[in-house]
Design a protein around this nucleic acid. Structure first.
Length: 160
DNA sequence: GCCAACGTTGGC
DNA sequence: GCCAACGTTGGC
């Protein structure tokens, strides 16, 4: 028995990895590495194959939800934590007891029109969104089914 | 277990 | 570049 998909949002700085990078990646798939926050990691661990993911550009002009992706592999150890040369190296992590996980995400779509933060803030139905909460910095966060539908409608997803 | 100091995130 | 908000570290 498979459960119905859940919804999530991940943040990325487009100068580091953008929605276009994902679209151009081999098999349009990437491992989502580098998450180094426990709450965000725990959400990664909750993800199941088929879950739907909003792709958000942070530190961008403007910051915006720009498209969507899908979970194609559930949590497994993030190998950058073992790599001394990586910015994401964690000396406290061991192969036996890895601290940090990643998932694989596959490109679904780039929105015809990106949805900037200030546009999202105008939607009464989105006012509880984790993304829009004051001081919210979580780079992996849950999205409700209702929030997902509102955003898909605003994005004109599936239409031309 | 408290909390000051420090580091990071990310909008502006 | 600024800085508010938040998370982590480490002395006590």
């Amino acid at each position: 028995m498979t459960r119905s998909p859940r919804y999530w949002l991940v943040k990325s700085e487009p100068t580091a990895f953008s929605i276009d990078d994902l679209a151009r990646a081999p098999r349009q798939t990437t491992c989502w590495d580098g998450v180094r926050n426990y709450q965000a990691r725990n959400f990664l661990r909750e993800m199941a194959i088929g879950d739907q993911v909003l792709f958000y550009h942070s530190n961008a002009e403007p910051p915006a939800v720009v498209g969507s992706a899908e979970v194609v592999k559930t949590a497994y150890p993030d190998d950058t934590q073992f790599d001394r040369r990586s910015h994401h190296f964690d000396p406290a992590s061991t192969r036996e007891q890895p601290r940090w996980d990643m998932v694989d995400l596959k490109y679904k779509e780039k929105f015809h029109t990106a949805l900037p933060l200030d546009r999202l803030r105008q939607e009464p139905q989105l006012k509880e969104m984790v993304l829009l909460r004051k001081g919210s910095r979580l780079s992996v966060q849950p999205v409700t089914g209702r929030e997902w539908s509102v955003i898909m409608r605003l994005a004109g997803s599936g239409k031309r």
